[in-house]
Design a binder for these strands. Structure first.
Length: 284
DNA sequence: CCGGTCACCTGAGTGC
DNA sequence: TGCACTCAGGTGACCG
């Protein structure tokens, strides 16, 4: 579920709770959510101090330190991954259904001293690294720039070099990182661009407008602590940006700009919401 | 290079 | 109530 604004919200909440604390112990109840060996992951993170929790594209990045050695825990939440605080599960009543990993932090009140990774669909992945392997892994991800650290001209170059449909490209994390289905649809609507248009048809002005609208939307969504569509929540509850969606999930309702009915179609296997009038964009 | 489909999982909602 | 079916915020593998 989570896209850039949701992951940003979760990362900053986690940073607030965990930074400076020691991971006293770690446990995994379902090894399938760990990339690699669960025992290696728990051994690597136990005893580490959490330096900071940041966002890398849609990844959560826990930067860790044990004595003079740097380490890292990377988490991709995919569709239904979340974190919550609770008791250490191996003592009090056992693991909750859908909780798959636990990290006990120092200096927190009992009963809420453990960071629990929950993932209904089990698509998410946790992976732990030493400093060197981390750099290699991150390089291998080939993440494109964040929308906030991208010049309009560079964005236009990146887009126009590529074939394919505009929306599909926005979802490609190597082109720009952080966008997902909701914010791709919302950004295209705000910029008045047709989701299936070809990037070759985009003028520099179109690209600049798209990037500017994308940033406004992502900023506003971060302010609102993300969009809660079905079950997303951060450490501090749900987001509210879904109330500001103009097209996502609004097929059959009136376009807020022109009143035409919002339509939905499949593009690249993803449901795509758009206004057939505002986003006809002359391009097909 | 590109697009389409499926697989990975579970749960919620809908329609009969 | 029950059952069958569709859909979901992501990504990667596979195939033509």
């Amino acid at each position: 579920m989570p896209e850039l604004p949701e992951v940003e919200t979760i990362a900053s909440d986690l940073d607030e709770v965990a930074a400076g604390r020691i991971i006293e112990k770690a446990a995994v109840s379902f090894a399938g959510i760990v990339a690699g060996e669960a025992e290696e992951l728990t051994a690597l993170v136990e005893g580490c101090r959490v330096e900071a929790v940041k966002r890398l594209g849609k990844w959560l990045y826990f930067s860790l330190q044990r004595e003079s050695e740097a380490a890292a825990l990377l988490v991709h939440l995919k569709m239904t991954g979340q974190f919550h605080l609770g008791p250490w599960p191996e003592e009090e009543g056992g693991w909750l259904r859908h909780d798959h990993a636990a990290f006990k932090l120092s200096g927190l009140p009992a009963g809420a001293d453990t960071l629990l990774y929950r993932d209904i669909r089990k698509f998410g992945r946790l992976r732990a690294f030493g400093a060197q392997q981390l750099a290699d892994f991150v390089a291998g991800l080939g993440l494109g720039p964040d929308p906030f650290g991208l010049e309009a001209e560079d964005f236009h170059q990146r887009l126009s070099r590529r074939k394919g449909k505009l929306k599909t490209l926005l979802l490609d994390q190597s082109l720009v990182s952080g966008l997902g289905n909701i914010y791709a649809d919302e950004s295209l609507f705000a910029a008045g661009l047709c989701p299936w248009s070809s990037p070759a048809e985009l003028t520099a002005e179109d690209s600049a407008r798209l990037l500017a609208q994308m940033r406004l939307i992502l900023r506003a969504a971060i302010e609102a602590r993300g969009s809660t569509v079905s079950n997303y929540q951060g450490l501090k509850g749900t987001g509210s940006y879904q109330k500001s969606h103009k097209v996502y999930g609004r097929d059959g309702s009136a376009c807020p700009r022109c009143g035409a009915l919002i339509e939905r179609m499949l593009l690249g296997g993803r449901s795509t919401h758009y206004c057939p009038v505002c986003q006809a964009g002359a391009k097909k």
